[in-house]
Design a protein around this nucleic acid. Structure first.
Length: 123
RNA sequence: GACCGCGGAUGGAGGGCCGCUCUUCCGCGCAAGCGGGGGGGAGGAACUUCCGAACUUCACAGGGCAGGGUGCCGGUUCAAAGCCGUUCAGCGGCCAUAGGCCGGGAGGCGGGGGCUACAUCCCCCGUCGACGGACAGCGCCACAGAGAACAUACCGCCCCGCAAGGGGUAAGGGUGAAAAGGUGCGGUAAGAGCGCACCGCGCGCCGGGCGACCGGCGCGGCAGGGCAAGCCCCUCCUGAAGCAAGGCCAAAAUUGCGCCUGGAUAGCCCGUCCGUCCCCCUCCGGGGGGAGGCGCAGAGUGGGCCGCAAUAGAUAAAUGGUCCUCCAGGUCCCGCAAGGGGCUGGACAGAAUUCGGGGUACAGUCCGCGGUCUGAA
RNA sequence: GCGGGCGUAGUUCAAUGGUAGAACACUAGCCUUCCAAGCUUGUUAUGUGGGUUCGAUUCCCAUCGCCCGCU
């Protein structure tokens, strides 16, 4: 498994998976993001993104999702194994580029204490 | 030449690294999948969902009603879809009373000109429009005004009367978006299509035009307000819903039917040993019911596949992120200038069954048309 | 993807085609030692652009924004 790969296994894809995170997970809120997170089985770290229509048009929403997905992809090894994470940018989210996306994700990681606890999954 | 408006075209280029999706080939793996190589991967509007077509399911003898839509005339334009024909790929034909485009006709509004002047009328220019019907019926026309829809008489004018008042009248004034067509002459007590001429209006005939309509002649003294993007009447069109259409596969649980009843030994069978759930009946052989297991069937949930790809084909939904170079463009600095350098920097917007048309958004560049200002001749 | 609906003061709502109102809020004044309450007064709006009409919040068309429903 390559370090920066982002295949379907890294995404939450089913209604059930989302429901499970909402039901069992904790909610953490930062300046720009709302996140639900829990630990599931296996080592795979999965992310799901929700962007409200109030954020803007399709172009803007896609851009936001791509930036957050890219930030997750690049900093994934910092996260706990088996993490299930749902990220929901608040309406009027100020994230406009990759640096801000990474910054927000790091803030979230620290606030929710989702750092990898040492058992490095060295590829 | 500058600026503005409208219409059209175009919708930055190349590369490195890390990723996504589809497809194909190779290798590994029981499989899920993993690794590697090749190839494809947003738009003129993909936006909007305003029209129409294909496609799908349901409904359907025939006719009508209701409902929805449509509305001057002529020409033209139509699909990488679909259907038909022919054919090797290709060609031809059919289908859109929706829309688009071009031209025309009556009409409204604004401006200019003409008939000496006003009004009407005529001509020209610009502009607007869903442009059948107001003697089929119903409804509504606020305020103002005397009167607003089988009209009316305030100030007036005329006659009678000393006056009060009575009668005639609809020219003039005034109100209004709209008040028994307009101008002139005659006529009259004063007036009035009361009479006449011209214009307007209605009807008929003739002529022109494919047609909407237009022109001419004759007749009628003039009927009668506006609104149908109010209800409505007439013409013509119209079965309904939409890919969340629709079709298929099919866990778990449930329902029905059938069969069977556990464990150890063992690769399997026989055999042997231990055990044999609950309730009822019993002639002690057994029978019935429940529970459990297995199989089959029905329906079809979660889920999946098809629909869904003639150069994208996903399904929490790919087509990206970042860096470098160049090219437009903007701005600042140096320079008399040519030029040089720094910083910045590319709009509107992203497929979800497909196709055609309309509408709307749009940086910069280019082209065309129009307007305003300025300059030269 | 499809089908419906709604846009009126700062807010919540009215208005047969005929001067756009009400409540709360806000401004000013009165009252009170002051505040609140009360009384009086005033300001503010038809999403935008066209069309029909003498006249449009209302009718029609386009556009923009918002809301709801359908697996």
């Amino acid at each position: 498994m390559k370090e920066f790969a982002f295949s379907r296994a890294s995404r939450l894809r089913l209604e059930k998976e989302f429901e499970a995170v909402f039901a069992a997970g904790k909610k953490t809120v930062t300046r720009e993001l709302v996140a639900w997170h829990t630990r599931g089985g296996g080592k795979e770290k999965k992310i799901g993104l929700m962007v409200s229509k109030k954020t803007g048009g399709a172009v803007e929403r896609n851009r936001l999702k791509r930036l957050l997905r890219e930030a997750f992809r690049l900093t994934r090894k910092e996260l706990k194994e088996g993490i299930r994470l749902i990220i929901y940018p608040k309406a009027g989210c100020a994230v406009k580029n990759l640096a801000q996306a990474r910054q927000e994700l790091e803030t979230l990681r620290q606030k929710a204490r989702l750092d990898n606890d040492g058992k490095e999954e060295r590829s």
